[in-house]
Design a protein around this nucleic acid. Structure first.
Lengths: 144, 144
DNA sequence: TTTAGTGCAAACGATTTGCAAAATA
DNA sequence: TATTTTGCAAATCGTTTGCACTAAA
């Protein structure tokens, strides 16, 4: 694990990594929560364990984990990015009433089929895709 | 099932609309461009016709058009939102090299199939979905 | 000792908002 | 006239960055 190099977004070499308690804890939190927290929510949670942790440290580690492929950044039309530590391919659902972001497990073969279809009439290279579903979550349905 | 999602902020009734030359022009520009411009790019373009137009006005109208379903806001993991005046269901491709956002026409039936699959094991209501494809565009492939 | 990571605060880019004037109905 | 929209500027939000210090290797 030590001394490995990898590439950042622009192709810049990334320096060798050193262990950090904060980073490990952030990674662990992302791996157990199902909340898809924003950076600020991660920050609030980390404060319990590291009262002096700074928001900058949280952002730096979230970006690092994302670059390492150990976390996923999810962009939605409303508000800041969300982070997800679940690494297997899956999709997300955004409730347009309460704003909750939920995991949505579907047979990925249907998604792959759609991607293959997309690739047919396209003269670039498609390497991945993300689908975000919208609608009303069960909690909001109950309340209405 | 469309690839679009109409965003209503609170569910409260929308105030009566009055005509505005700026809004019409923004709407028209979105309907003819294939650039998927950012708010700032729309602003720059509008300045030719309305030298004194303000960025605030552009944002207000882009949001209004989005709420009305007459434009679509596209969120990507890098940078600001893009806007699209093309209303038929279609998908988008983001080049991870040059950042260009392109239209991607695929047989929507494969997307609908994926959505139907998604709905099966989900106890909320899915009303729409958007898929964003990633990869390298043909221009960038040529250059490498 | 050398290098990476941290906390802090300031800077930043994107977007929103309060207000008085202008346009529309 | 009454109400909406505009231009402007200040404010806000999410995120990044420079720096001196601390922790890890």
């Amino acid at each position: 694990m030590s001394g490995y190099h990898l590439k950042k977004k622009g192709g810049f070499p990334l320096a060798t990594l050193k262990y950090s308690r904060q980073r490990e804890s952030i990674k662990h939190y992302l791996s157990i929560t199902t909340k898809h927290p924003t950076a600020d929510e991660v920050y609030m949670h980390m404060k319990k364990e590291f009262p002096n942790i700074s928001l900058g440290t949280v952002y730096r580690n979230l970006n690092l984990l994302t670059d390492l492929g150990e976390a996923v950044k999810i962009s939605t039309p409303d508000g800041g990015d969300r982070f997800d530590g679940r690494l297997e391919p899956h999709n997300h659902f955004l409730c347009t009433k309460c704003g909750r972001l939920l995991d949505l497990d579907i047979d990925m073969r249907s998604v792959e089929a759609a991607t293959r279809k997309a690739a047919e009439n396209f003269d670039g290279i498609i390497t991945s895709s993300t689908t975000l579903f919208y609608g009303e979550c069960s909690d909001c349905i109950k309340k209405s």
